[in-house]
């Protein structure tokens, strides 16, 4: 029945006293300051040269028309030019028909020199500080494939070490990728040539995919990536090595800006031992097809059902049973019964 009419700040039963005025002033000042504090991150956003309305309004990669993609590429070019003072060559390169990429890595040849790691960093404009590396080279004790026993911090005067083998791990471009399934905004997906890509402008940085990946292959930009301007690779593409902003995921993409044009990934070219092999698995004569046919091949964590497109293989350097290293390794692992012992009978079927 009653209608309140605001009648000035002192309306009400409590008349304005010095005490209430001061108290209200303190409360108001506190409220305004708290509001300013809450909005203060916007200052940083406004000061950021890379923030633009065009990027904010940009559509998902799959929904962009040719004109919209060209506009997005032009925006990326001008941003790179402003930040690094070079005019990059940014393109959107689509997959080739009839091609499915597969990687194979020869564990008998890899010596753990980490050339691939840094070739990848240079090719793909990864942040130098803080560092981001797509490839992690595990030093594994010989005789086991238990990844828990691997160590990527090894720091030896020379490699390889006789009692270890080396297992580089990067994105396996799974045919059944758990990282794609968990993405809440579909910022990552699998392309027809088998490469799982990320739209860096669509990623919200929730890091679900990082948690879902059983190979620890995804990297997050916790800080603003920094690349020295003289080390920028100007050959860029939208889905691969264009500069990434802070707060998005990135990962190995088989150098798609190179491989979709027939070239080889940077990690492969830098490998001094030829342990890395790359090619089209749909071509029965390609090197990777030959490896899958003729070599002993394995994938990591086969039991989790990710169906990786990254295979590891061995050379048989000695006829079976004649490898001089095999017996001491097997003995050190307790896999070989001593000559006098009867055959182990603990196995129950």
């Amino acid at each position: 029945m009653t209608t309140r009419i605001w009648d000035g700040p002192s309306a009400g039963d409590a008349p304005t006293t010095r005490r209430s005025f001061l108290r209200n002033s303190v409360a108001a000042a506190g409220g305004i300051t708290a509001l300013a504090a809450a909005l203060s991150p916007l200052r940083e956003l406004a000061g950021q040269a890379d923030f633009s309305v065009a990027q904010f309004l940009q559509k998902h990669y799959k929904e962009m028309s040719a004109q919209e993609m060209e506009a997005a590429l032009e925006r990326i070019r001008s941003e790179v030019e402003r930040r690094y003072e070079i005019r990059p060559h940014v393109r959107d390169i689509r997959p080739q028909a009839g091609v499915e990429f597969v990687y194979a890595l020869n564990l008998s040849r890899c010596i753990g020199c980490r050339r691939c790691v840094y070739a990848c960093v240079e090719e793909n404009n990864q942040s130098r500080e803080p560092q981001i590396q797509y490839i992690r080279v595990l030093e594994m004790p010989r005789g086991t494939l238990d990844l828990e026993k691997g160590n990527h911090h090894y720091d030896r005067p020379t490699v390889p070490d006789a009692s270890h083998f080396y297992l580089p791990v990067q994105c396996h471009q799974c045919a059944n990728p758990p990282c794609v399934k968990v993405c809440p905004v579909e910022a990552t997906w699998q392309e027809p040539d088998g490469i799982t890509v990320i739209d860096y402008d669509w990623c919200i940085g929730c890091r679900y995919c990082e948690a879902a990946c059983p190979y620890w292959a995804r990297r997050f930009n916790f800080a603003e990536p920094s690349v020295p301007a003289d080390q920028i690779n100007p050959e860029m593409s939208y889905l691969s090595n264009r500069p990434r902003p802070k707060g998005v995921m990135e990962k190995c993409h088989f150098c798609l800006h190179r491989t979709r044009e027939g070239r080889l990934p940077a990690c492969l070219e830098a490998c001094p031992t030829g342990a890395r092999k790359f090619g089209n698995v749909l071509d029965p004569d390609s090197e990777v097809s030959q490896i899958l046919k003729t070599k002993r091949v394995l994938v990591l964590k086969e039991e989790v059902g990710t169906l990786p497109r990254f295979f590891y293989y061995f050379d048989e350097r000695y006829p079976r049973g004649l490898d001089p290293d095999a017996a001491p390794i097997a003995e050190s692992l307790g896999h070989l019964p001593a000559p006098d012992d009867p055959a182990p009978t603990e196995h129950h079927s």
Partner: peptide, 14 residues
């Protein structure tokens, strides 16, 4: 021949 390895990762999580 043996190689000198390049530096170990000093990344944020690694």
């Amino acid at each position: 021949p043996p190689f000198r390895p390049l530096p170990a990762p000093d990344t944020l999580r690694m």
